[in-house]
Design a protein around this nucleic acid. Structure first.
Lengths: 399, 399
DNA sequence: ACTACTTCGTTCGATTTTCGGCAAAAGGGG
DNA sequence: CCCCTTTTGCCGAAAATCGAACGAAGTAGT
């Protein structure tokens, strides 16, 4: 019940920063805690910082994660871009970069791209490659999480069943976690911004529309890993708009960025894609603003049903279109608060994502961090043997 | 990692029925297992049955839950009925009875009713009152699960904030779990029939329409405990049917049993309520059958969206209307398989509930059982001291 | 500056938990 | 009837944990 992993967890969460506090929180003897901490320090995950504030007696020695020697890579793949970020194990962003990259180029070039960026980031921040303890990757399509393989991804030709984790596992001998980009965004939003909302939805409104689900603090992927695919829910009164999925009236085909641009173009205001619509709104185009709000209402209509069903504590809206969140969220809120049950809405917050461009990479990094710091993962690791002790001597002086 | 609670869990699940098997499964030494088992036996939760089959050597002594000395009460309150069941801790139904009871009579009469039935069931099965280890209750309205108090239940006047658990806790000194009736049904269906479906929806189509959600094997209650309230999701093309909630076009107002009966009556076929519709269908009335199927389609329309969002592994349909599940499920399936994504539907099963009249009480009992047998609950109990040792002597012979 | 007091971390023997081997128990098969 | 297999109980050894005592490192008061 109070394994080394749990002790680390308390340190990680900031619930207990000193040995004495750990002993108080866990109820274990101080000597036992000391041993646990020693193991974690020797394993390299924890370090002592300088003395803390005295509360009338000897000042405690503050413990914290060893962020210097432990970091992760988070990669966010989009249809046309790739962002790679280096985070330390505490979740702090150390460096990141984004460049255009077509996912249609296929797996290998993309993997190599990530690989190269990863090395650049490490060099830039002066960290050795051994400091990377795990890699998280978000991809724009469905993934079988357990194996990290995309399954019939619509916009990723050539990626079906491609074993992404193996590429990096072969080169770095670290765990690689691959998930849907929306899941990764939801995770990041939960861990970085809404830690208190146990049940959270992240709705990404971009070219398409998707949703990441946090249930009880963990990602809900569903029975086949396809949970959150709200883009193809049929919306009423949409006529017979044809969706790329073959059905008609899908939310995505009516309210996605591409659909919005098309509708705007049809109304005599040329817009190439969602991004163009955003620019139009930002430049004060009233018609574009109205249409975005309309789209917000349509999305809100679908979300209203989901709110009744799922009763989330927070809905975070992200994606390209969320860059004009005033009109979008106005529409969303308008409908949700009208249509959903008061009990489900009176404490519900609907907010734009605060993560910005780096959201995906941060979330992917978080996926990796969560994996490494999971208590039973720690317990297993410590049971095996010392990882890379401070002095790089495997069977070092135990005295 | 292998506490007494975990050992009990293995026995309970049937994963390991003998000491030797427990040792193999947990990886602990046989002697340690023996001690764990001894503790559980002395605590009264486990007993030895006669020898099992020999596999070539000494036959093992089979362990099982002590179902004689440990049972629970499950109570299912409806608008007009009350069913009380006695289950042993293994989940077997020992006895149950149902009688008409208006929930509108208010808390105290209902509590006393349950109390009386409970004693009858105990007498009938010859179990002492001390054998009851927990009580689970399902009520037809929203409940704050942590406190067991109904919150503004629409059809339970006088029950708002009534502290149901205290009534029994004062009299029996056992834990009392109170939850929404649909949640309880979902739990029962998962535990008794669909153990393998980690993500399951139980859709109750009665006078109203509600849904219980199993996420990752556990009940999902949502941020405010109102999850699953799909009865008030707006359905398209329903005109302006007014719902009791004040909104128009709610699923429940269009496809609930009451709505169905009203529509049938309007079509010249008098039907008082959902039950009457069921009888009509069963007696071969084609129009009624067609309408039920239509209603199935409407419900399927809402569920199709939810399937995309949630990606459940199974949908179980229960409630009064599910008594005519052929036409109802035909409609539901028809729409779901048409509208939802193939990935989400190709392994989805949509089935009628197999629990029958006793489903609610069984589920409520299961809620109680799950609470008692939760590993950390066991660990805490064993840490405190021997519960009611076999020989009723608290500090009995330890040697 | 010195002393009393508080809190923190470590050391070390005592205690409890867990392990591992051995032998007895209990059955099957030749 | 003897040998083999598997299970279980027993017991000393090993490991983990605890708890008390002590030194360290600060604050507060005189």
């Amino acid at each position: 019940m109070n394994s080394p992993g749990d002790v680390l967890d308390l340190i990680n969460r900031g619930d207990a920063g000193t040995r004495a506090e750990l002993a108080r929180r866990t109820g274990m003897a101080r000597s036992t805690i000391a041993q646990r901490v020693d193991a974690l320090i020797e394993y390299g995950l924890v370090e002592e910082s300088e003395s803390g504030e005295s509360t009338g007696g000897r000042p405690p020695r503050v413990l914290r994660l060893n962020t210097e020697r432990n970091c992760v890579i988070g990669a966010d793949l989009g249809a046309t871009h790739c962002r790679v970020a280096l985070l330390d194990i505490g979740g702090t962003l150390l460096a990141s970069r984004e460049d255009p990259l077509l996912i249609t180029e296929g797996p290998l070039p993309v993997m190599e791209h990530i690989d190269a960026r990863m090395h650049e980031l490490l060099a830039e921040t002066g960290r050795p490659i051994e400091a990377v303890k795990a890699i998280g990757i978000g991809v724009p399509g469905p993934v079988e999480f357990a194996t990290g393989r995309p399954v019939n991804p619509p916009i990723m030709p050539g990626w079906h069943e491609y074993p992404i984790p193996e590429y990096f596992r072969d080169r770095y001998d670290v765990e690689v976690l691959v998930d849907n980009d929306v899941n990764v965004l939801a995770l990041g939003e939960h861990r970085f911004a809404h830690t208190d909302a146990d049940h959270l939805l992240f709705v990404k409104v971009g070219t398409g529309i998707g949703c990441g689900i946090i249930a009880d603090g963990r990602l809900h992927r569903g029975a086949q890993g396809s949970a959150g695919d709200i883009g193809h829910i049929r919306v009423p009164g949409s006529g017979d708009v044809l969706c790329r999925c073959g059905n008609t009236g899908c939310l995505e085909a009516v309210a996605g960025g591409a659909a919005l641009a098309a509708r705007l173009t049809a109304a005599g205001i040329p817009a190439a894609d969602g991004r163009a619509v955003v620019e139009l709104v930002n430049s004060g185009n009233a018609e574009a603003g109205r249409m975005v709000r309309d789209v917000g209402r349509i999305i809100g209509d679908v979300l209203a049903g989901i709110v009744n069903f799922y009763n989330p504590g927070a809905i975070v809206v992200g994606g390209v279109m969320a860059q004009v969140h005033e009109p979008l969220l106005a529409g969303v809120r308008e409908v949700i608060y009208q249509r959903s049950l008061p009990l489900a809405t009176h404490l519900l917050t609907v907010v734009p994502s605060g993560a910005g461009e780096e959201g995906g990479a941060l979330g992917a990094g978080r996926l990796a961090i969560d994996h490494i710091l999971a208590p039973d993962q720690i317990n297993r690791a410590l049971a095996k043997g010392p990882g890379v002790p401070s002095s790089a001597k495997p069977p070092a002086a135990t005295r």
